[in-house]
C-alpha cells in the first residue's frame, strides 16, 4: 500500500512570527521545521504502510528547496518525498496550495492520502477537503482512529457530540487530529538513513500547473490592513502562600459566579 502524507514545513512556532510589511505574506525566510501537527499523519502512515512493498511518500510545498522538515519525517521512516518548490508559489492561498499538492499526489498514485487537520501557522483547515475534491476522492476529516481493512478505510471521526464511525473505499483522503497516534522520535539510524533518501524537487510546470493558478495571482484575495491589537491588561498577581484558593473564592464572589 502506498500512503501519501502531506506535510508542511513551517517557521518555528516558538519563534516570533511576522507578516512581510509589503506583500503581507507570512515571513517564511528563516529555517523551516516539520509542523508538529504533521508528525501524527507521518506516524499513522508508517503504521498503516508497514508491509512488504508498502511505502510512505511525503508531499510538501516549500520555498527555496527547503528540506529540513522533510528530513525529520524521512528520519521517522518515510521512504521518499516529493517537494514542490517554485518562486511563483509565494503568496499561495489554501486553494492554490491544494492544487499544487493534489497535482503532486497524483504522481505518487496513493491508496491513502493523510493530512493534518490544519497547519499550525496558516490553519485554514480547508485543504484536506479541497485536495479530495480536486482528486475526485472521498474524504473523512478529523480522524481520531484509523484502520485499513482490505480496500476500505475505517475511521473514528471526531464530532461535536462524540464521534462517528465512518468508512470509505480506498483511495481516500483522511485528515487526522493530534493524538490519533503517538509519533515516534527519529532514531540515530533513522536520521543517518534520511540523509540519503530521495527527495524529488519539482517545479509548478513539472506538475502540469500554470503559474497564474497559484501564488499571489491565483489567490484572488489580499490583506488590505494589518494592525496591532491592543493587549488585554493584566490584573492582580498573587503568589500563593496557602491563601491562593481563598483569593480565588473572593474573586468568584465578586463576579457573583458563586
Amino acid at each position: 500500500m502506498n500512503v501519501v502524507v502531506c506535510v508542511k514545513q513551517i517557521p518555528d512556532p516558538a519563534a516570533p512570527s511576522a507578516l512581510d510589511p509589503t506583500t503581507h505574506n507570512l515571513d517564511r525566510t528563516g529555517k523551516l521545521i516539520l509542523d508538529d501537527s504533521d508528525a501524527y499523519g507521518v506516524e499513522m502512515g508508517l503504521q498503516l504502510a508497514s508491509g512488504e512493498g508498502d511505502e510512505v511518500i511525503l508531499v510538501s510545498m516549500a520555498p527555496g528547496g527547503e528540506t529540513s522538515g522533510l528530513r525529520t519525517a524521512l528520519a521517522m521512516g518515510a521512504a521518499r518525498a516529493i517537494l514542490i518548490s517554485d518562486d511563483s508559489l509565494a503568496g499561495s492561498d489554501a486553494l492554490g496550495t491544494a492544487k499544487v499538492l493534489a497535482a503532486a499526489i497524483k504522481r505518487a498514485e496513493p491508496d491513502l492520502v493523510l493530512t493534518a487537520t490544519e497547519s499550525t501557522d496558516g490553519y485554514t483547515g480547508t485543504i484536506p477537503a479541497q485536495i479530495a475534491e480536486l482528486l475526485g476522492l472521498p474524504s473523512i476529516t478529523f480522524a481520531k482512529k484509523i484502520a485499513i481493512d482490505g480496500s476500505t478505510v475505517r475511521v473514528e471521526r471526531q464530532t461535536e457530540a462524540g464521534y462517528d464511525e465512518v468508512e470509505s473505499p480506498l483511495p481516500a483522503v483522511v485528515s487526522v487530529t493530534a493524538g490519533v497516534v503517538e509519533p515516534r522520535y527519529p532514531s540515530f539510524k533513522g536520521i543517518m538513513a534520511a540523509k540519503s533518501k530521495p527527495v524529488d524537487v519539482v517545479t509548478v510546470a513539472d506538475i502540469g500547473l500554470e503559474a497564474g493558478q497559484v501564488g499571489a495571482t491565483g489567490a484572488r484575495q489580499e490583506i488590505t490592513d494589518v494592525s496591532k491589537v491592543e493587549a488585554r491588561a493584566g490584573g492582580e498577581i498573587v503568589v500563593d502562600d496557602g491563601n491562593g484558593a481563598a483569593r480565588i473564592v473572593t474573586f468568584l464572589e465578586e463576579l457573583k459566579v458563586i
Binding site: G136, L137, E165, E167
Partner: peptide
C-alpha cells in the same frame, strides 16, 4: 456525487 460521496457513517457515538 460519484466516488467523492462514498464515505459513509456506520455508527454514531454520543459521549
Amino acid at each position: 456525487a460519484g466516488a467523492t460521496g462514498t464515505a459513509k457513517v456506520t455508527a454514531r457515538h454520543v459521549e
